[in-house]
């Protein structure tokens, strides 16, 4: 490696893209970092390349995490921040547990029917849940959807058997609006999530919830008007 020099003459310059994107091996990386200590021009170029490399990470889709994500986060949070996410989220776990019971009763996703005997209430008796609908796809029943009224109101979705999709967009319709609630991951065609309903969507007015695949195809639909 050369010492400090004019940028145009730095042999190390050709390695900057690999350093920026993280693909440089240990020995070359160490030598290049040592060079950077004394070369402002290379540092400036590296900063631009890092910004470009970081931009690639934006290509990953936004996916709503599974139910309980925030609760799990709280359990691992540093002491002074623990509890920050707790208020108002406990009921989600109860709704999800009830939904699993419904799913199990309908023969959907049996592997997840692990709810304890003490929580043997159906989803209909869970706080806030006002409407239920079976999620149907070409292959038949592919899950259940529930609307829970509250502040805020929520849509709870339990999906199985959509093996052709890696992720889906969830869209609800109330007769006036088609509202996308976000994009959600599926693993082996399965997924479950709870998502807030926007204020403009009334829980009692929702007519359907659809799962739309990456190509824009409606893969499954829950009809709340039946």
């Amino acid at each position: 490696m050369s010492g400090p020099s004019e940028h145009g003459g730095c042999a190390e310059r050709t390695l900057l893209p690999e350093l920026a994107i993280g693909s440089l091996n240990g020995a070359e990386r160490a030598a290049l970092l040592a060079h950077l200590e004394g070369c402002q021009a290379c540092r400036n170029e590296l900063a631009e390349l890092l910004a470009a490399a970081d931009g690639l990470l934006l290509l990953a889709p936004s996916l709503e995490p599974p139910v309980g994500f925030e609760v799990g986060l709280v359990g691992r949070a540093p002491g002074r921040l623990a509890g920050a996410l707790r208020p108002g989220r406990r009921w989600l776990g109860r709704v999800a547990a009830g939904l699993l019971l419904v799913a199990a009763g309908a023969g959907i996703g049996g592997g997840l029917a692990t709810s304890p005997a003490s929580s043997g209430r159906s989803l209909r008796t869970e706080p806030g849940v006002v409407r239920l609908a079976v999620l149907r796809s070409k292959g038949g029943v592919s899950g259940v959807a529930a609307v829970a009224a509250g502040s805020p109101s929520r849509l709870v979705m339990r999906v199985s058997g959509l093996g052709q999709a890696y992720w889906v967009d969830c869209v609800v319709t109330d007769g006036h609006h088609d509202v996308s609630l976000g994009r959600f991951a599926l693993t082996g065609g399965r997924g479950r999530w709870t998502v807030r309903l926007p204020a403009l969507v009334s829980p009692s007015a929702i007519e359907s919830a659809e799962l739309v695949g990456p190509g824009g195809t409606v893969l499954a639909r829950a009809d709340f008007t039946r």
């Binding site: 893209p17 690999e18 350093l19 994107i21 970092l33 400036n44 890092l50 910004a51 470009a52 931009g55």
Partner: peptide, 30 residues
Amino acid sequence: KTRIRSGLMKLREALGPLTASGEASSKEAK
């Protein structure tokens, strides 16, 4: 190595002013 180098340099050029430069001698997380 050439594919990485050429690709990232073209990407940087295409992004232009969006990739705001700043002092970054190394990035610990990389």
